[in-house]
Design a protein around this nucleic acid. Sequence first.
DNA 1: CGTACATCCTCTAGTGACTAGAGGATCAAG
DNA 2: CTTGATCCTCTAGTCACTAGAGGATGTACG
Lengths: 142, 142
Amino acid sequence: MEYTIGAAAARTRIKVPTIRYYEEIGLLPLPPRTESNRRLYGDAEIGKLNFIRHSRELGFQIEDIRELLSMAAEPQASCHQADSIVRNHLFEIDRRIASLQALKGELSRMIDECGHGRICDCRIIEALADHSLCHSEHSKPS
Amino acid sequence: MEYTIGAAAARTRIKVPTIRYYEEIGLLPLPPRTESNRRLYGDAEIGKLNFIRHSRELGFQIEDIRELLSMAAEPQASCHQADSIVRNHLFEIDRRIASLQALKGELSRMIDECGHGRICDCRIIEALADHSLCHSEHSKPS
DNA sequence: CGTACATCCTCTAGTGACTAGAGGATCAAG
DNA sequence: CTTGATCCTCTAGTCACTAGAGGATGTACG
């Protein structure tokens, strides 16, 4: 089967400009074109696009996906490298969860302590102004 | 006390270009300058910068901080609005934690099922290619 | 007093992963 | 034959900075 870019977008739930963007950054190969210069995608490209979308949904970065795609293209190679990309990603997600949970604690506390009165009595503004009122360390959640 | 931009940066742990950036987007007022055109900050600006840094560390967006700062400047107003900004942010953080935990589950499963052999037998690549192998729904963690 | 070197200034451009829109060509349906 | 959907390329915008050029000023040391 062959698909126009719009049909490919519909099948993969990736937007048309995003598909063109993936081509531009070399994540997708240059597809053949019709006589009137329109892109034509086959089943292999649909598969790649689904792979990309799913990996993005799982939070992988484009550069990780680039590597994972090139591994997928070499079925005889060891999967050690794929394993390590996923492991690193998992580690990063753990870090983010921990950091968000610390934030959640601080913010809940701020809300609990807010007396719902005037700004001048408000612990929220006070707490934002002064980190030493915090119970935990926190750095920007990435 | 008065501080050069570098001294203000050292005291607040915000980088010099970032302070200039905050000025450019109107988050910080235009500071007075020396005869040789250098910015001079007083204690009030140091306080604002600390407020900004802490709020950023807690994950607030610049536009939220802009509102929070203007509230902090009106001590007689109700803190209802501040409360609601923080509440919304907390809600968003909860959403993110839930989404990251779903991802974590999927990725852990992928790693467990990887036989550490060849790509062609690897469940990781297979799982990435096909969302229907997933146990949970997931959308991009934002 | 001269000379390093740090710090300051403004300005432009880059990051990641898209998204939005202009301006124009081509296609399919009625 | 016209209408409207889809396609093309290109540029610019998003967020919150970061990096670097090119030049002026300040400070410490010999």
